[in-house]
Design a binder for these strands. Structure first.
Lengths: 188, 188
DNA sequence: TTGAATTTTCAGAAATTACTGAAAATTCAA
DNA sequence: TTGAATTTTCAGTAATTTCTGAAAATTCAA
């Protein structure tokens, strides 16, 4: 089962980049393949297409499922499980944001809150506490904004994309979503 | 040179999380330490405080410098170099965003553009091309929005933070920055 | 039930990444 | 200049992560 050059390039690239999203290379490749292949694939097909062992595919699928990033399908008369990604790419982005928030940002905020609460014992501790407060506020602010974006429906997000991407436009759109009114909407 | 508990917890946590930001554990620890320590530190001090070899510190500092994340200081009569982070934590966030965009997002967009251009030879390639176009548009949109945010001055961003963090508020703020006017500013 | 088909687990091997000590290179005061 | 102080480099080692094959577990049609 030979992959087209287009797919091979895409898969290889996301394999390399995958680690930045919290996966290893093969898991990145697997997801990339599922994302651009026109039909759901079973584990054996993935194993063959990417030349990785069946057991590695099994572990990779398990990890991707723990990220809620896969959809399962079955075909009549075939006991194998077939995997695909959500049809809507925006849905994928939303899930990744949510999961990363849960896995990385939330624990960091908890740690910072705990340490900021604890009475500092030294001058050093006092300074550290101040700095942690600044860091807490920054992360909290940004993550709340991201939460809100992630909470918008894929459909709303798509409308936003069509409007253009400037921060100003994004905001203008949000206004419409929440029913706000503005003087100079035509500027955007 | 014993670290306070507060600093130790913070350093350990960012060591673990560091890999998500593109660094390894020790580089994450080093930056965490420099971020919350009240004064600039030299390489020997970092080495001792974190119990890592002097050469490892040297390599870590080099990497952090390639990310433009360090400021250098000197003290009269002392030949050692002293390192600290930008005073403003928002400046740190802005630089990380810019560097990650340059190192990860830009190459991905280039790859996608190239592959989308290339005429597909198979049905599979045709479908892949479609999907890549969707992905390209999403990444491009989001990254343009992030670029704009990163381009705002730390001072403007701080004002934004003080206003609160809802998307709506962010937009309202951007309006003020760009001189726009709105009916119901008092709602935010 | 049974057993063939399928998926999962996991111990060990392979590959990759991080770290160290020693040596080389650089810097700068005298 | 010289040489002591300091920083960087890098080959080898250590630690970690990823991957595999074999075996165990699960599923389900007959």
């Amino acid at each position: 089962m030979k992959l087209s050059t287009k797919i091979e390039t895409f898969v290889a690239h996301f394999g390399e980049m995958g680690s930045r999203w919290g996966f290893n290379r093969t898991v990145g490749q697997m997801y990339a393949l599922l994302m651009i292949y026109s039909r759901p694939l079973n584990a054996d097909e993935i194993s063959e297409m990417l030349s990785i062992s069946r057991s590695n595919v099994s572990m990779g699928l398990k990890e991707l499922q723990s990220w809620r990033l896969l959809k399962l399908t079955h075909y009549p008369g075939d006991r194998k499980e077939y995997y695909k990604t959500p049809d809507d790419i925006i849905e994928v982005a939303r899930i990744v944001l949510e999961e990363r928030h849960k896995r990385e940002v939330a624990p960091t905020l908890t740690m910072l809150r705990d340490e900021i609460m604890r009475e500092p014992v030294s001058e050093e501790g006092k300074y550290a506490q101040q700095r942690m407060t600044e860091i807490y506020e920054l992360i909290d602010t940004v993550s709340k904004a991201v939460d809100e974006l992630a909470a918008l429906s894929p459909n709303d997000l798509r409308k936003m994309m069509k409007m253009g991407s400037s921060v100003a436009s994004l905001f203008a759109f949000k206004d419409k979503l929440v029913g706000g009114k503005r003087d100079k909407a035509e500027e955007y």
